[in-house]
Design a protein around this nucleic acid. Structure first.
Lengths: 347, 347
DNA sequence: TACGATCAGGAAATCGGATTCCTAGTTTCC
DNA sequence: GGAAACTAGGAATCCGATTTCCTGATCGTA
């Protein structure tokens, strides 16, 4: 392209017949200039298509007007919406976003951190793949952790309020008259699996109910969702599966899955066993990942963690910190209950 | 954090007992210095944790060592891997990636383009949501279009080779002895739907075969995949669906779906109709989107467009262009056939 | 009329490195 | 032994915009 065509402030100054400093003042609405002069400069500027050089600007401003988005993950299903939400909010603050994905590699992460420091980013948003707390990074600028909180409670973190999400589900299910509720989690050691179970148990206990059977843990796949359903059904019937009268003996009237993927698998298997969702068994998912929650038959009642908003919130906190008003501690963002046919029938 | 702690080159110079210019030379391996001096400077530098200010560096280098990743899309399923692949390749070239998502809004896109120009990015990679050609952007630096090519054939674009992908599928299916092949596309007006059909038809014709029936177009949902299967089965049987002997009269022995989502829906419906995949009907998808292709029952034979590699390739072309060796025209990246149980049984 | 106050706009310093140009020392070679 | 050829490293300039400081002109008021 027309490489040499970069317009400098002196070019504008020449065209407008003023000095470079006047151009700067005119375009930034500073200093004291006659309005006619400002107008003349502005016209010259956009006649030439002048766009001030950000490097020069940040050199003297001692600010880069850039923030780093450091993703432990390769920006997967969870961190991606967070990153997008953040990027979106940053644009409003006239900030640009430097993308840095570490792909779980500490060496790469370190490299990225150095690069961000070299660029003198005004701040950094760190996201992770899971809600497990992570080691904080050490940098000379404000940092906000999103989705995966910092293990240092003094750092600023924004995480989805999983407990509240589960509370909403319990209220919903119990409100529908469901009483015998089983739980299917993902990987046993992950916070998402555990927190959701613990909250479920506590909320049921508060209503003089209890989780049916032990919590079932496996992985986060649809296949495990299917198998878990079999275990639950088997639990109520002994091993033989006499068809037909199954419904009479159902050990549960609702199953809470820790993710939409699990729930979708669960719905499939329930249907294949001749059971109706939600008439015989209500099902709930978690995440509101549309590819799963909407494609499921029936579509899933689930919890939307509002990850985009979470990223946006992280950006807001970061901007505040950059402007000298840093936050401390973990902020929990309220999720949204999404009711669909897997609990409400065709309603 | 320790805001004031930013180390400048003069600090290093002072500690090492040399001048700033000597520090610069020592750290960049330029100029002529005694090795002992270089060592002394290096030590001082990392004792202080000196990281040169990128703004200052790019101001004098007249290069930002930054490239823009402009995504028309909100970095969705297709553009995301491209973006990640690109970011990954850029890191190798010591370049940072500025993320800019336009979300289909021309105003936002224009805003982002201005911001990228202001930052004097060394180049821009533009990605889109579909493979539809798009309007080029006008900027004074090299641009490479990835996934969605530029409508100007003189621009550099990298796109997946859909025709080759379909050719691989046809070879595979025909090699397995399948002869009566139907096609199910997504949205009728999209290049992905059309190119795949046209290539399928041509490849079959080259083997004295023809696509069974008309190509079926709908949307990209699983639901449409299921419905399409019904249309295909109905086509061979009249309207009444006498169960049991269905297999005798099957109008097809394979269905090529234009996406994994469609194919997964298709598999579900085939199974629900009592047909076995692939014994009765082989099924192929497209995209190798693991959430679909692996979760499908059976797992899908499909085509991996290698979008990460595509992004990587775009980055390579961009880097070459930045270094003065620009490419022209559309480069098609070979996809990879992924064979799974939906055509090969348990093999 | 004169003097201080206000105002418009220019000159120069600054941001932090990179790079070009010099200048003392040190070698080399005749 | 002296001139030419290197060497090591410092001083100064530059990148492009912002910002401070300053000057000349205009205005207001006694």
């Amino acid at each position: 392209m027309d490489r040499g065509a970069v317009v400098r402030i002196t070019d504008v100054a020449a065209l407008a017949g003023v000095s470079p400093s006047t151009v700067s003042k005119a375009l930034n609405d500073t200093g004291s200039l006659r309005e006619s002069t400002r107008a003349r400069v502005r016209e010259a500027a956009d006649r030439l298509g002048f766009v001030p050089d950000a490097s020069a600007r940040s050199l003297s401003a001692r600010r880069s007007f850039t923030v780093g988005l450091l993703s432990t993950d390769s920006a997967g299903r969870f961190s991606l919406p967070v990153v997008l939400g953040a990027e979106n909010a940053l644009v409003g603050g006239e900030l640009s976003a430097l993308l840095a994905t570490a792909r779980h590699d500490p060496v790469r992460e370190q490299h990225h951190v150095r690069a961000l420091v070299a660029r003198r980013v005004d701040g950094i948003i760190v996201t992770g793949r899971t809600t497990e707390p992570r080691e904080p990074i050490k940098v000379p600028m404000p940092v906000v952790y999103a989705f995966a909180p910092s293990s240092d409670p003094d750092d600023a973190s924004v995480v989805p309020d999983d407990a509240l999400g589960m509370r909403l589900l319990v209220e919903h299910l119990v409100g529908l008259g469901r009483r015998r509720i089983a739980y299917v989690g993902g990987r046993a050691e992950q916070a998402a699996s555990l927190v959701r179970y613990v909250t479920l148990a506590a909320e049921l206990a508060a209503r003089d109910l209890a989780v049916v059977g032990e919590p079932l843990y496996g992985d986060w796949s649809e296949q495990w969702g299917r198998r878990a359903v079999e275990q639950i059904l088997a639990g109520g019937l002994g091993s033989g599966s006499g068809s037909g009268s199954e419904k009479r003996d159902l050990p549960v009237d609702a199953i809470v899955f820790a993710s939409d993927q699990l729930a979708r698998g669960g719905c499939d298997r329930l249907r294949e066993r001749g059971l109706r969702v939600p008439d015989d068994v209500a099902v709930t998912g978690y995440d509101d990942w549309d590819v799963m929650s909407l494609a499921s038959r029936p579509p899933l009642t689930t919890v939307d963690m509002q990850l985009e908003r979470l990223g946006q919130r992280a950006a807001e906190l970061l901007i505040a910190a950059i402007e000298g008003d840093p936050a401390r501690g973990v902020e929990r963002l309220a999720p949204r209950l999404v009711v669909r046919a897997s609990t409400l029938g065709d309603g």
